[in-house]
Amino acid sequence: MDKFIQHTGTGVPLRRSNVDTDQIIPAVYLKRVTRSGFEDGLFAAWRNDPEFVLNQEAFKKGTILVAGADFGTGSSREHAVWALQNYGFKVIISSRFADIFRGNSLKGGLLTVILEIDEVEALWAAIESDPNTPITVDLESRTVKHSGKSLPFVIDDYTRWRLMEGLDDIGLTMKQTDSIDGFEKNRSSLKPKTLPVKS
């Protein structure tokens, strides 16, 4: 995973709340067995509309998606994160994210930033009045900077450290194999096993 320390780019205003992962990438696009190539499916149904924000020339180069509340609800499909990343997004800003989507995004290095709803509104206004408004998302100082403002955001220390170091979660857990072995030694024999097969 690439390290994430700071990103500066322009924003894409997605003025919708409750953007579920079926909207981010419809199920018909989930059939690939790779992690790449999902950009075609990103917001597939909405992209048929020429007015849709991703179809507007002014926002084509945006790397920071600014969305309404409850972004990423519904299905656990990590393909939603891949589609956003494959398309070129580095950061998603919203006032609230669904739990599974947020977990997936932070595992995969797509930074999800929570700002207050009025700060999201102000950011939308700034981007819409000038799509070239530079936005800097600084994970080190945990701030979003735009239009002369510096807005703090919250992210736990551990996740921040892992993203800034670009560390693989599995590799970190593998270092705890002794603890896992120890846990398994004391695990109740009442717990079911899938093997051997009983029917």
């Binding site: 990590e78 595992k107 979660d169 599995i170």
Partner: peptide, 8 residues
């Protein structure tokens, strides 16, 4: 869980 967690 997501696919990264499935792998985990």
């Amino acid at each position: 869980i997501g696919t990264s967690e499935v792998e985990h």
